[in-house]
């Protein structure tokens, strides 16, 4: 009798625990309240911090650009398609903003190819994509550290006969709010309107 009682009890315990686990699981799948086009990464990543050099060759840190909504993008200036397309799109998204809001957004283009991308070359490249964009680079260990901080990586292919080589890098755009908190991860296939929508929401939420 006793064992039977316990067997029944353990069945109830298992059923209850399963129910609790199921509830916990569904809780985790809950949606964000905000209607973002990008993926919400609040709390998933550390705040914006880096130690790099800008296109004037000066060393800069994350604090130097604080107070604005920032979009961080990894790439290299010899990039044939991904980088120009993405930077073009970001430029269109920001230049379509209300003029009062345009200065509230800054694009940080981090070149992960410091061997070829000198500050001068970087300056020329980013100037092509509008005013509110900064070119950054650094020594490879600094770049590796930044990439690791944002859970991404980059690699170099074997150079071809002409000395050119491809660089694999993240295609995502990391968006940080004015305080430097990570907020959104945008895929490059978002449209400029979708990007703009998210940027406006971020600018206005802090104002």
């Amino acid at each position: 009798m006793r064992t039977r009682f316990w067997r029944q009890r353990t069945n109830i315990i298992s059923a209850t625990l399963t129910l609790i686990a199921a509830l916990l699981l569904t809780g985790c799948f809950g949606n964000d309240e905000e209607d973002w086009n990008g993926k919400n990464i609040s709390g998933l990543m550390p705040e914006l911090e880096f130690d790099l050099i800008n296109s004037q060759g000066k060393s800069v840190s994350g604090d130097d650009y604080s107070g604005r909504v920032r979009m961080l993008f990894f790439g290299f200036t010899s990039c044939p398609d991904v980088c120009p397309t993405a930077l073009q799109k970001l430029n269109q998204a920001t230049s379509g903003l209300d003029p009062a809001l345009q200065d509230e957004v800054l694009t940080l283009f981090v070149s992960v190819d410091p061997k070829r991308d000198t500050p001068e070359r970087l300056a020329k490249y980013v100037d092509f994509f509008g005013d509110n964009i900064v070119g950054l680079t650094g020594k490879e260990p600094q770049l590796r550290e930044l990439a690791k901080r944002y859970r991404t990586t980059f690699g170099y292919d074997e150079p071809a006969a002409d000395g050119n080589y491809a660089v694999s890098h993240s295609s995502a755009i990391y968006v940080f709010d004015r305080e430097g908190n990570p907020r959104l991860l945008m895929r490059p296939d978002l449209s400029r309107e979708e990007i703009r929508h998210d940027l406006v929401a971020l600018i206005q939420e802090d104002a």
């Binding site: 699981l25 799948f29 990464i41 859970r151 991860l185």
Partner: peptide, 27 residues
């Protein structure tokens, strides 16, 4: 039953696409 649920459940949980995405982004 709980052991089985946990064993298989954890695999499904961490491979749930949205959870997996977050897990790979957050240290």
């Amino acid at each position: 039953f709980i052991a089985l649920f946990l064993f298989v459940g954890l695999i499904y949980f961490w491979l749930w696409p949205s959870i997996h995405f977050d897990a790979m982004l957050s240290r």
